[in-house]
């Protein structure tokens, strides 16, 4: 009972209820077919599995973005970083880059993620040391990133022929799609990290009031640097999944406009866009909501472009809910109490 109470108060409560609601809605309109999961060649197939597989990129990004937003910042360069990471991985595997490691998927992955982290470090450096506003600082890489990716691939859409690389998106372990494991491992790792260290507390504190946090002994600059590095690495991971999915690197379209979805996931998860307390699980729920809405809209036979309309309305609704001004107007009593 007490656990239930705690759950109801948690940030993840509403997003998870909404997610389940969407699933339920789908089940009803599809007369149960939605939930059906079939087993073929030892793999599970079904809409639900698709949601988790297709949503895995967004879930990774949402985790990185959650940290950045909690620190009071924003990172609009994640889509470009995805393009860079895919370009690097594919070029390495084909041997265009570091011919010595040609075909080494492992090295390709390490290099791609390292490149993502490096991009993040650049963003973090501009934000925490040069003290440029986060949106402006990450704008630079957002503009440059796709260009850099194109230069790596020499402006071509390159394809790779490597089953082990395909495995990142298309593979199965114990019947479940591989990218889901990536999400789960990262999520568990982060949960462990935030539970076993005081990182979460320091991050929230820095995002709410960086002056107080500094005086209390928190190294605010380092915390901020770290979240951008992590966000960059997470974006690189998402880029690898995407690139593996299309079996190559398409720098023009990889992760195009996905930064907006990532920010939206964090917001739908009920995390304040102004920074502070955060919930990773809630952001992941937010990502799943976006993904399941997409799936629903496809399933209902509605033209997919409507998804963006829905997203637009969602963004406005959520901002209005979070807006203090509106709540003062609607709930004067509550405002007065504060």
């Amino acid at each position: 009972m007490e656990i239930l109470q705690k759950y109801r108060r948690a940030r993840i409560f509403w997003p998870s209820v909404i997610f389940l609601g969407i699933l339920l809605f789908n089940t009803i309109i599809s007369k149960g077919e939605f939930l059906s999961i079939t087993m073929m060649d030892g793999h599970f197939y079904g809409r639900l599995v698709d949601i988790f597989r297709n949503g895995s990129k967004l879930m990774l990004l949402a985790m990185g973005m959650t940290f950045v937003i909690a620190s009071g910042g924003i990172d609009i360069s994640v889509g470009s970083v995805m393009a860079i990471s895919g370009a690097i991985a594919c070029s390495v595997i084909r041997g265009n880059l570091f011919p010595f490691f040609q075909g080494s998927v492992f090295f390709a992955l390490v290099l791609a993620v390292a490149a993502g982290a490096l991009c993040g470090a650049w963003n973090g450096f501009l934000v925490s040391r040069v003290r440029i506003q986060p949106m402006v600082a990450t704008l630079i890489l957002m503009v440059a990133g796709r260009g850099i990716a194109q230069l790596i691939t020499n402006g071509k859409i390159i394809t790779v022929n490597s089953p082990s690389y395909y495995f990142i998106n298309g593979g199965y372990i114990l019947g479940l799609p591989f990218p889901l494991y990536l999400v789960i491992i990262l999520f568990a790792g982060l949960l462990f990290f935030t539970k076993k260290t005081a990182f979460g507390l320091f991050l929230a504190s820095s995002g709410i009031n960086d002056k107080s946090s500094r005086l209390a002994g928190i190294r605010v600059e380092n915390i901020k640097l770290l979240v951008y590095v992590f966000c960059g690495a997470a974006a690189a991971g998402a880029g690898l999944i995407e690139s593996s999915g299309i079996k190559g690197a398409d720098c023009n379209n990889a992760g195009l406009m996905i930064e907006l979805d990532a920010i939206l996931s964090v917001a739908i998860g009920g995390n304040l866009l102004t920074g502070g307390r955060f919930s990773l699980g809630a952001s992941i729920c937010g990502a799943l909501i976006i993904q399941s809405i997409t799936t629903t809209i496809y399933a209902m036979g509605v033209p997919p472009e409507v998804i963006q309309l829905v997203k637009a309305l969602l963004v406005i609704t959520i901002s209005l809910i979070q807006s203090e001004k509106l709540s003062i107007k609607l709930l004067p009593a509550k405002a007065a109490a504060q």
């Binding site: 260290t197 005081a198 507390l201 504190s205 709410i208 928190i218």
Partner: peptide, 23 residues
């Protein structure tokens, strides 16, 4: 740190003193 709880506010400096990795 306004949006944090009393408990978190109280533990902040002690935690910083001990270091982030030793909760």
């Amino acid at each position: 740190v306004g949006e944090l709880s009393i408990r978190d506010n109280i533990m902040l400096a002690l935690q910083a003193k001990k270091g982030m990795t030793k909760p």
